[in-house]
Amino acid sequence: MKPLVLITGVGPGTGSALARRFHEGGYQVAMMARNAERLATLEYELPGSIAVPCDVSDPQALENALDSMEAKVGAPTVVIHNAVGGAFGSFLDIAPEILERNFKINVMGLLHLARWAAPRMERAGGGTLLVTGNTSAVRGKANFAGFAPTKAAQRILAESMAREMGPKGVHVAYLMIDAVIDLAWTRERYKDASDDFFIKPEDIAQEAWHIAHQPRSAWSFLTEIRPFGERW
């Protein structure tokens, strides 16, 4: 029986690359996102995968989706919280509701997901809960007031969970992506940038795969990845 990976935030970039990498590695893949049409297309591309349309910011919808998935394919061995709520603007200008919405996705979504998954992993003898983040988790730049506070809270929540669940055999890790991800809209925005400026979604997925399969004697919590030319 194949192990199961659950990935939230399966969009056209990192989420899809994660789904493809774990499918390639022999996992059954459960894919969660709001866009049911995109999930259906990817479900067709990856035989044996399962689409789980859901808005992770809605706790009841998330719980229902998780229970429905478990009834069909069982509990996951690996969970990757890749769903992200983002917005940019000065703290003087952004609507407070935007910060609240992003908090629901980035932090509360992770909390509800982990409260469901971690006990199941512990009972099964182990598992991995991986969160994809970025450098907003460690610094609050100008015009990031609607986003950075939620990513910082997300990282701290993940660290708290890692310290609690690690001794119980559940690996919680935070993958911090310090880069512009190579997508159609980022290529359009940074028209003059070279290929070396971007990070490839498939390379992010490869590092996620590595983290999810680290030996117990060498678990990492915080992993940073960036293109070789990135200034940091």
Results as ranks from 00 to 15, higher is better:
74 G>Y: 01
62 L>M: 10
21 R>S: 04
94 I>F: 13
110 L>C: 03
232 W>M: 11
98 I>K: 05
231 R>A: 12
144 F>P: 00
2 K>I: 07
130 L>D: 03
169 G>E: 03
132 T>L: 14
46 L>W: 06
213 H>N: 13
151 K>S: 04
86 G>F: 06
222 L>R: 04
118 A>F: 12
209 W>C: 11
73 V>R: 00
180 V>N: 07
37 E>P: 06
144 F>I: 01
192 D>Y: 00
34 R>Y: 12
212 A>Q: 12
66 L>T: 10
85 G>Q: 09
139 R>Q: 11
29 V>R: 04
13 G>E: 06
88 F>N: 08
148 A>T: 06
138 V>M: 05
91 F>V: 09
84 V>I: 10
51 A>H: 00
183 L>T: 10
180 V>I: 09
200 K>W: 10
216 R>A: 14
129 L>E: 11
146 G>M: 03
79 V>R: 03
193 A>N: 10
58 D>I: 05
161 M>C: 04
114 A>M: 14
48 G>L: 12
212 A>K: 04
113 L>N: 11
223 T>W: 05
37 E>M: 03
169 G>V: 13
116 W>V: 09
72 K>Y: 12
59 P>W: 09
80 I>Q: 09
66 L>Q: 05
170 V>K: 13
112 H>K: 15
10 V>F: 13
29 V>S: 07
113 L>H: 08
136 S>Y: 15
38 R>L: 12
55 D>W: 15
161 M>R: 06
215 P>W: 10
204 I>W: 02
219 W>P: 02
112 H>W: 15
211 I>W: 04
70 E>Y: 05
39 L>H: 00
33 A>P: 04
26 G>Q: 11
198 F>G: 06
68 S>E: 08
147 F>N: 11
167 P>T: 13
68 S>P: 01
72 K>A: 09
212 A>S: 15
140 G>E: 07
156 I>Q: 08
106 N>C: 03
41 T>K: 15
97 E>N: 10
64 N>M: 10
85 G>R: 06
146 G>W: 02
163 R>V: 14
89 G>N: 09
160 S>Q: 08
179 A>G: 09
131 V>M: 11
94 I>A: 15
67 D>H: 07
124 A>V: 03
192 D>A: 11
27 Y>F: 13
17 A>K: 14
129 L>S: 07
63 E>R: 03
163 R>N: 07
1 M>P: 14
139 R>C: 09
207 E>H: 12
35 N>R: 12
35 N>S: 12
34 R>Q: 08
27 Y>A: 01
26 G>D: 05
188 E>Y: 03
51 A>S: 07
52 V>M: 10
168 K>W: 01
